[in-house]
Amino acid sequence: MRRDLIFTLAAMAALLAAGLYGYFGDEPFYLTLAAKAAIFGLAGAGLNIALGYGGLVSLGHAAFFGIGGYAAGILASHARNYEPLMTWPVELAGTTSAPVIWIVAMLAAGLFSLPMGLLSLRTGGVYFIMITLAFAQMLYYFAVSWPAYGGEDGLSFYVRNELGGLQTMNPWIWFLVCYAILAVVLVLIAILTRSRFGLALTMARENPLRLANLGIGPKRVLLTAFVISAILTGLAGALYADLNRFVSPAMLSWHMSGEIMVFVILGGVGRLGGPVAGACVFILLEQVLGGFTEYWQFLLGLALIIIVLMGSGGLAGLFDRSGAKKGAAHG
């Protein structure tokens, strides 16, 4: 628990340092990268609730990321075109208010995750992976073939949405917004894992049979975790859409699901700060390796294979072991 906290603080400090470097060094590009890392970290933190704490290997989290993104894109585009979202049974207008958009994004992702989780949990095990992947793909194809919001080409909007009187188009401000949201979410997750529900979730992961024998249904617990997980990843999607001022079916693709999973694995599965660390490293690799070759994901793939085969537990695992060694030397 203690090491988990220190690791999380270290990851958050590193991310803040990257942002500060961008701000004081007057490098808006770095600020954008740091905001992207915060958003990816948030998406990964969402997935981590299902994957790390619940043991649910979801390969469909791009669905929630994309739903969040489209929620932002669609609401904003309706507001800018002064077209109501719908006229029946009640008239609903679009909005450019970021908090409203965030709430809608989270609701939409949560609502979609409910039937998806229910169906995927019907059999569990390896089916869960295949079914989550398939449902995300369904949404992807829907977004590609539904022309109203840009279809394959996606949907752009020109300014970020509004948050109080803040200058959201200013990269520094936008980074701080994303960073603050990430920090709040991490605190909430830390509380959640220490709650009654966190206890039940651990048991659902490590020994579902025992949990059922206590009179607590493992599927209900896991489904709840899945929905919470989807809601957070949906929020990340809304922020990502605002970051790019663009949404496209790519946010819904299986490749995105894989990447979100990579953030978690690189950082450390089931570790609070893992996804943040993983997202930072991912973006670092993208920049460094991407500078050498356009095919940098080839190298990323090789690195991932080696990391997993060595069984290192990601960056958090490395951090633990270095600490353990130091501890042993002192003691």
Binding site: I191, R194, S195, R196, F197, A200, M203, I216, T224
Partner: peptide, 16 residues
């Protein structure tokens, strides 16, 4: 955890 089903259940998220 075994006591919880009789004590308000497990669906409490915010109290450590």
């Amino acid at each position: 955890l075994a006591l919880l089903p009789h004590e308000g259940g497990v669906f409490h998220f915010l109290r450590p």
